[in-house]
Amino acid sequence: MSKKNSEEFAKKIRLKTIEMVYKAKASHVGGALSMVDILAALYSGILKYNPRKPKWNERDRFLLSKGHACTSLYATLALSGFFDVAELDNYAKDGSIFLSHASHKIQGVELSTGSLGHALPVGCGLALAAKRKNEKHRIFILLSDGELDEGSNWEAILFAPKHNLDNLTIIIDYNKIQSLGNVKDVLDLEPLSGKLKAFNWQTIEIDGHNHEQIFNALSTLPKQKGIPTAIIAHTIKGKGVDFMESKLLWHYKSPNDEDFRNAIKQIE
């Protein structure tokens, strides 16, 4: 799929995400919006998958480590054909499988996440499993910046290059804001690129909203044989809705009627 299609796809995901968060009076819209362009690119040309056969053995595995931002993943999966878009109306309703953290009971979701620092260790296991059987599919993990505070990620970051897991790619949604403040103020990650390079990862930095850059980064993997790839995607929290952009408030806040109307207008 082309860059233009991917941008159109991102717009649809954003609209659906805002609608879900608004209707359910849910949180985490800021972090859901910052990763939309990455999701759109992944599901419109990068990942190998078959929505009619979600357990297809040769599929690429995508794990959302920042499970709290699952609204835009659910929207992406629905719009990619894994299930009916109408099912998203059940999001965060009593008895629904569409929980406010990613659930593996949903078609296309590989792992229940929400507790931070889990998907990368599991992803290392998936990558190791594939390597030992010489299977060609790839493993992609999307992490938040705040969750890099968790030590388990750094254990896994040590592990993957040591064991030549070049079928593993991490994408860091670096929107610079975590739950209660700026990343640099809470627990600074910088120099992030330098850290990942020092841990022996192939590391590249991109604008996480520029579809051409996202496609370029994700189209030729691994960047170097035998070495896992880390993509630091510089993003904007709440991307696409000006009054949400880079605002800490929108980590947890839910849009009211007026916010919702304004947000939809802007994205359309």
Partner: peptide, 26 residues
Amino acid sequence: KNNFIDTGITEQTMIGMAAGLALRGR
């Protein structure tokens, strides 16, 4: 050795990896 890994002193991460391997039928 094809069915063995020493993950280093990483108990929590090893369990995560074990889950990943189990998801792939191991």
